[in-house]
Design a protein around this nucleic acid. Structure first.
Lengths: 129, 129
DNA sequence: GCTTGACCTTCCAGTGACTGGAACCAACAT
DNA sequence: ATGTTGGTTCCAGTCACTGGAAGGTCAAGC
């Protein structure tokens, strides 16, 4: 199976798939013409990567997950630990973003948003500490 | 004022300050010995940048905000528009993160997290579409 | 048989916003 | 005179791709 088909089936751009090969995440066979030749197991790995990346795992975390996936003797606790860690990380990020959001919102509330140069948002950014 | 002092006063690492000079955000004078020499207005700009960056504006947005800040005839509506756009963007990001969080949470809930290889998180990542 | 176009290959450069490190120069305390 | 601290420049690395150039391959249509 050529890379174009692999791309369609995994929902990943060809460029990304080549990149994943470069960093040794997926190693397809090569056809005689030099084209990459993906088997079903490769597609499976690619989809696994697509999904775990979209769930916010970093490439290195995906590498770990993939090896856990392929380790028949893995402990589910290892995977759970990674997931829980990720949840904490997401919670932290959400909190931070909501803080920013609230600050910006408060500033925008106080800004009449007209033609005049008077602007509390700018004033806040420029405030002395 | 040397870069070290500027760094303390603006709460930005020296490296970052030099980088901001490279991309033409802050252009300090130079002392005779070649050292960067920051005046109060420079510090003001640096703090403005520190604060707007920490509020989640990109460098290019900061550049815009800075020019609006220094434009005595700016309309406050211009600034407000940028802030509101940023809020929308943050809301989108928060929603996305919460989606991820919920998915991960649901998966972790169903995972007993023991020594056995059985793991619903991995199963989900590996699921066929 | 030839051309066209889609698809594949490699390799190099760029993104954003820094960060780390090497090699060197300046200022100041002891 | 020497050591420490703090400047300077420049180059490389980060993360996870993405874009583009230059060229090879394949199937279809004329």
């Amino acid at each position: 199976m050529n890379i174009g088909t692999a791309s369609e089936r995994s929902n990943l751009p060809s460029k990304t798939i080549r990149y994943y090969e470069e960093i040794k995440l997926v190693k397809p066979a090569r056809a005689q013409n030099g084209y990459r030749d993906y088997c079903d197991a490769d597609i499976h790995r690619l989809r696994f990567l697509q999904r775990s990346r979209s769930l916010g795992f970093s490439i290195e975390e995906c590498r770990t997950l993939l090896s856990l996936y392929e380790d028949k003797n893995r402990a589910s606790s290892d995977v759970k630990a990674l997931a829980l860690e990720k949840i904490t990380e997401i919670d932290r990020k959400v909190e931070e973003l909501q803080g920013l959001r609230n600050t910006l919102h408060a500033l925008a509330e106080n800004c009449h948003g007209d033609d005049k140069p008077d602007c509390p948002i700018i004033d806040d950014l420029a405030r002395k500490f």
